[in-house]
Design a protein around this nucleic acid. Sequence first.
DNA 1: GAGAATCATGTCAGTATCTGGCATGATTGT
DNA 2: ACAATCATGCCAGATACTGACATGATTCTC
Lengths: 248, 248
Amino acid sequence: MNETHGTGNGHGRVARLEALKLLLAEREYTTAADLADDLGVSLRTLHRDLALLRNLGVPVGGLAGRGGGVFLERGWSLGRVHLNEHEAMGLLLSLAIAQQTRSPLLLDDIRSVERKVAQAFAPSQAAKIRSLRRRVLIGRPASPNVVEHLRPTHPATTRPLLEAFTSQRIAKIRYTDQTGAWSSRLIEPHYLYYSTPVWYVLAWDQLRDDVRSFRIDRINQIEVTASTFRIRPPDRFVSTVEFDARPI
Amino acid sequence: MNETHGTGNGHGRVARLEALKLLLAEREYTTAADLADDLGVSLRTLHRDLALLRNLGVPVGGLAGRGGGVFLERGWSLGRVHLNEHEAMGLLLSLAIAQQTRSPLLLDDIRSVERKVAQAFAPSQAAKIRSLRRRVLIGRPASPNVVEHLRPTHPATTRPLLEAFTSQRIAKIRYTDQTGAWSSRLIEPHYLYYSTPVWYVLAWDQLRDDVRSFRIDRINQIEVTASTFRIRPPDRFVSTVEFDARPI
DNA sequence: GAGAATCATGTCAGTATCTGGCATGATTGT
DNA sequence: ACAATCATGCCAGATACTGACATGATTCTC
């Protein structure tokens, strides 16, 4: 029903409430209508959510009347900040991308930030994050030519793809190549390669029994199978992209 | 923080999850069966709740086998990462840049990461960070033409400029325009504008008594004065850059 | 190694709960 | 007086939550 609206993770009411807390904390001041819009729910539902938060003890204040709004009573702060796997990856990825722009101002000591952030993860998560990091490569920005012919991607394909990637599952895809011809593939998604703003998946094509790379915006259909795959040696994959690509 | 009512507060999954968090926090160690019993739900539901918490980023650990159990991982929060002002800004900036690439995959929930990270700063610093954030705008990547004529910048100029920007000090600069002619200016650096990989400063030019924008790599010399300035209304500044620029 | 304890995940049908739309009241600034 | 806003009630339909049962995986004990 609602669009994907980057506002917060996943689905379900719980996640939405979490997002709502963050929105309230972030903005000094908003109106209920704004919040409802940001969260992609009706005004009625938003008010219900506010009521629920109050019920849980979050001091949400409201002022009626013109110029009114909703806000957090001051002196309230969120406790610890927790990131899930995807968020953690997104964070590290952002840092890597920013670093790649080699901006002079503000970003020159991103390396140290990166290290600090990476160390902030709990040992148990760290292992998983580390292994995923190695499998995400970033390269140079894509050429204008490539960017121009970029197609929009849909969560309906990206989400399963990510799922297959992170949990090392074999995926069955339908892919359209440059010429417009399409084919069915059975792939092991080993690496993700990012060339702003284009994502590729470097995979082992089981039918062709060889390494193949796919632009994810050209993947039409995807189905994640139940069977998993083992990581193969990286060389073959990495050598298919520009040599200066580096893991995040 | 919360808990206006006891842990066992009535209805709804949200309340139960809150209770579950508390239970996990207060017990060093428990089994899923125990928790399910305490919360009055089936074991299956309890596991679903745990999965949900993990999805939200709460580091719930589990150990299978005899003597195993579930528990909260310690020491995971980003709140323990200590960043200085510049690093903090760099971090937020990185997220903003990444978000601006509008890439799908991994980055689609960058928004929520941004909010969480912004929240991770201590309340005392939060205010300052927030106000700085509003004064950094990011736009589209610069055209190849602009990038080509980019000059290297030196810490000798960027550092004082940042200093003037963050502490709202008036700066005296020598600036070289497109034609190669240079001039002296007395500026109030109100906004920074980033068009990858080029930085601009949007300032009030005191000698011309008007808004002017300066490409940072064209600033030859800079001297930070002792006098500070008051923030002026944003409209004039923001309207000098592309309309879709947004604060980080 | 066999067996038991425990975490983790899949499936399914019934139902509790959530959602959007609409209506109403209350409060406040212009 | 009017418009903006918060706050709540009600209702029908859609959603997702729940428990029961089954299975797999891991780890400890004997």
